[in-house]
Computed example of a mutant assay.
Amino acid sequence: MSKARTVLVIGGGAAGNAVTVLLRRAGLDVHLIEAKDDWNATAGSGITLQGNALRVLRELGVWEQVQASGFGFGSVGITAPDGTVLHAARDIRSGGDDLPATVGMQRPQLQRILIDAVRASGATVRLGVTATALDQDADGVTAHFSDGTSDRYDLVVAADGVNSATRAAIGITDKPEPTGMAIWRIATPRPAGVTRTDLAYGGPAYIAGYCPTSETTLYAYVVEANRDRASIPPESYADEMRSLASAYGGFWPEITAHLTDPAQVNYTWFDRMLVEGSWHRGRVVLVGDAAHCCPPTLAQGAALSLEDALVLAELLSGAENWDDTLFQAYYERRIARVRPVVEASVQIGRWQLDGVRDADVPGLMGRTMTMLRELP
């Protein structure tokens, strides 16, 4: 072709950044827009990246930076609320034996690494801009933007998150639904003895856990039944999380001592969503949280989003015709992998909400993570 195909990516999170880098590598002309003026204003204190996420990050060419910035480990501990270790199990290396089972890292640091990769790719980036309308025909999409400009594209990739305005604009009515749980999170200094994720079940919260995110940092979290967010004033966030966390022993007293600044505490509900049937309408295609989301009980949200980007880019770069057949093939390939992860993630939380004491959580986790060792 004499002219490179053009792609508009809406959203500069993990999925949008990844698909941008991969499509640029394939020689496509990619424009990325991000609604935030500050591209790295990323909510959340930390992120757990399983091996299948690391596999995609290696494909993006950023694995070395991730490895240097994060904290790799290969096991998970189950503790009693008082901190007594009841069981420690090796994590499944879902990215293959040549990658760690898990890397914890600060979420803004991952975003910075991906932003640098997008910039280096040569993609056109516009911040503080949204798409106000998408006019489609058989050959492409004319996008109209909030700054009054418009442009023509062969394809639009909607990577604008769980509350995707693009998803709604193209007539897909699915919305995230609460699962009944909520999570408090904070980044703190890492106690020297914390070298893996430990999870305590029971006590005043359903789960109290932490994950090392660098040589000096970790993020800690407690999971409870969701409450009306309007009833919790933000200035009380540190007090609320400290009230729950102070019941736990082991490393928790050292962690809890840093629960003083409410602005550093993040509170979110767990949601579930899985768009069924197809992830496209015409030449607008969904990736990542715009197509699916699940509770972080398996720590697979970012991994699934990165895999979406990898698979979509592979199909687009290898096809002469960008049509319904190709986009449906993308959906079919992804739904078979995403659905069991979403269902397992929700089921683990449901067992806890229902107080099922003999639930086979380790078995369900093991089966799901073993499935994820296969290439996406």
Rank of each mutant, 00 (worst) to 15 (best):
S2Q: 14
R5C: 07
R5D: 09
T6D: 10
T6L: 02
V7C: 04
V9R: 01
G11I: 02
A14R: 05
A15P: 10
A15C: 06
R25K: 12
D29Q: 12
D29F: 07
V30G: 01
V30F: 13
I33Q: 13
D37P: 14
D38G: 03
D38T: 10
T42C: 11
G44Q: 02
I47F: 01
Q50S: 00
V56D: 09
G72T: 03
G74S: 08
G77L: 09
T79Y: 04
A80C: 03
G83N: 06
R93C: 03
A101H: 10
V103D: 14
Q111R: 05
D116H: 15
A120D: 11
T130H: 12
L134V: 04
Q136W: 02
T142R: 00
D147C: 14
S150C: 13
D154P: 02
A158R: 06
A158L: 05
D160S: 04
N163T: 13
S164E: 00
A165H: 12
I172N: 00
K175C: 10
E177H: 11
T179M: 15
G180C: 09
M181L: 06
I183F: 09
W184K: 05
A187S: 02
G193R: 08
V194G: 01
V194Y: 12
Y201C: 14
G202R: 12
T213R: 14
E215K: 10
T217C: 06
Y219G: 12
Y221H: 09
V222A: 12
R229G: 03
A230Q: 10
I232R: 11
S236N: 14
Y237R: 08
E240Y: 13
L244I: 13
A247N: 11
Y248D: 07
Y248P: 00
W252Y: 00
P253T: 09
E254L: 11
T260A: 05
D261A: 11
V265P: 01
F270P: 03
D271F: 07
M273R: 04
E276R: 10
H292L: 06
C294H: 15
P295V: 00
Q300V: 01
G301S: 11
A303I: 12
S305R: 01
S305K: 07
V311W: 10
A313D: 07
L316I: 02
S317A: 12
S317P: 08
A319S: 11
E320I: 01
N321M: 10
F327T: 04
Q328N: 04
Y330F: 06
Y330Q: 08
E332A: 03
R334E: 08
R337M: 15
V338Y: 03
R339F: 07
P340R: 04
S345R: 00
Q347H: 01
G349W: 03
G349D: 08
W351G: 14
R357N: 15
G366I: 03
M369A: 10
M371I: 05
L372V: 05
L375R: 14
P376N: 10
